[in-house]
Design a protein around this nucleic acid. Sequence first.
DNA 1: TTGAAAGCGCTAACAT
DNA 2: ATGTTAGCGCTTTCAA
Lengths: 352, 352
Amino acid sequence: MDNDKVVPLTKGMKTPQRPLTLKDVSVASGVSEMTVSRVLRNRGDVSDATREKVLKAAKSLGYVPNKIAGALASNRVNLVAVIIPSLSNMVFPEVLTGLNEVLDSSPLQSVVGVTNYSPEKEEQVLFEMLSWRPSGIILAGLEHSDASRAMLKASGIPVVEIMDTDGEPIDAVVGISHRRAGREMARQITRYGYRNIGFLGTKMPMDHRARKRFEGFTEALAKEGIEVIDQEFYDGGSSLLKGREMTERILKRSPKLDFLYYSNDMIGAGGLLYLLDKGVDVPGKIGLAGFNGTELLDGLSRKLATMDAGRDEIGRAAARIILERIADEDMKGGQRIELSPRIQEGETLKRS
Amino acid sequence: MDNDKVVPLTKGMKTPQRPLTLKDVSVASGVSEMTVSRVLRNRGDVSDATREKVLKAAKSLGYVPNKIAGALASNRVNLVAVIIPSLSNMVFPEVLTGLNEVLDSSPLQSVVGVTNYSPEKEEQVLFEMLSWRPSGIILAGLEHSDASRAMLKASGIPVVEIMDTDGEPIDAVVGISHRRAGREMARQITRYGYRNIGFLGTKMPMDHRARKRFEGFTEALAKEGIEVIDQEFYDGGSSLLKGREMTERILKRSPKLDFLYYSNDMIGAGGLLYLLDKGVDVPGKIGLAGFNGTELLDGLSRKLATMDAGRDEIGRAAARIILERIADEDMKGGQRIELSPRIQEGETLKRS
DNA sequence: TTGAAAGCGCTAACAT
DNA sequence: ATGTTAGCGCTTTCAA
């Protein structure tokens, strides 16, 4: 028996250490590299016979194209960079879901970077992402470091700032006015006769949107001659438990409060649960409102008043802008989509 | 006045349409491209004088390196592909957060793809991601199409399957045994004397982990001679509201149920809120348990029994495996980390 | 410590 | 319908 003709089993299952190239497919199919490339990209005219030969060879070899080389040669990168502050706040995954929904029916693919609300981190992440030469960039907020703004302007690609419209966008912008959201909630609250109003929000100075809501809120109250009489802040991520604890503290300190405005639904829901557990009459004794329009609220015993921030629509609209701009090379930029924050009154606002 | 010497303001602020290259920096600094490259990557010996000249030029031009070209030339890509079924289920953002936490102190950057629980979509996303030649890949679950498994094996990069350990991993695996999680919960439930047990879960046939928990659960019950007497299923994402509605339906149908096992905390919490609103004695009249160990539960009036799935630790461990494998080129693969699901009894399990 | 040359794997542009 | 050539912007390798 001819032992040296026996192929060892381990080699039979060989994992190619060098990834396959177009050339491998070219050799296997007996067709030029260029034609293989055409078949694999569905470009140009290729005869059916050739196409099938190539596809068969590519499939049987398990060829996976190298997009790095392709992108370098064609100067086209089907990536959209998305920069968000956090994944823990469900708002951002929801935006991403809307965004992916639209991109899914396009050749584009999103790549996500997270900043943890740090402008320095944002700058790093942005630099890193731009170095992959994406076709567009979507980022949360209008506040960026000077260096970040410079990079964005110099990038020459569509830039869409999302979530917030209060400020000067670099290029396109999709979001709501958080100042207006705060103002409208304040007006509704005063309209219902509340006068002793408390605010509960994050300590985070870099959460500009929460800050703007608060500013709009106090500004509108001031017009009615009303001041926020107490405030309570929390660190880190929001949770029902923090909402409970903050609510307990602020009410212990300022028992005469008749309304609590929370900077998001999660802590608002915590406060609501706390008050219901205590047997407090909501909204008879004290009214409540949150922010975001989270689905979570639909399942509570009493529906918390809130304001819809239109998260998934923001994601979808941003994606659409990028797609349009890429489709029409010389379309002008600067699109502006301001969604209207809508109050969802729920059952914690209107006293019957 | 010499009008044709006036530089239009709009041109003064010119946005370079051709992105800058190493050569631009080389010309601006009077140093060879090669040396510029060395400075920007901190490789090799460069005199301080040269270094400063280069950095100054790069900064003032606003040069952003082209990683596509760099990756092609060096055959190194600092990307880790991560493939998850969904962003709507907070479990996955939590895993990503743990993962990014570890990758943050490394040169690696995660890139996320979402499959919507579809094996075909997973295959597409995987192909797309592999074509960027990432340094490693992390994906949820052990169930993949044959083509996906073939691509993963042929990729020659570290592959870490996460969340689940019940099955044959392709390479490394980090997760919990969902069968065991189901079994342990079943044992605890029977230990506390419950006998008329209902199950509430997703319709989704592709949620293998929920399926395995249910299998482990019924298997352990069977050993005690107990059968699940009723089941209720939901479509789409989980929510408190769906939990409420399902709970109402199953109890209307099977009033003698004395325990409800939910396939996740969100619907479990909905059920709990429903029962508390109805004034039902929990767990005196009926016991409840969910799954995941979500932080959400800490803020409910009564803490729901659950089981910790160790989401962020799974993300961190997966990232560490990738980092080790990349650091030590010829380290063997096949790492296996099975975390222990731990019951959190809460206040809806043990009858006092 | 610096530079010059070659080439990574693919595609644009131009033949044929 | 198919092939040939050049080159994308960088890094590797080798030379000075």
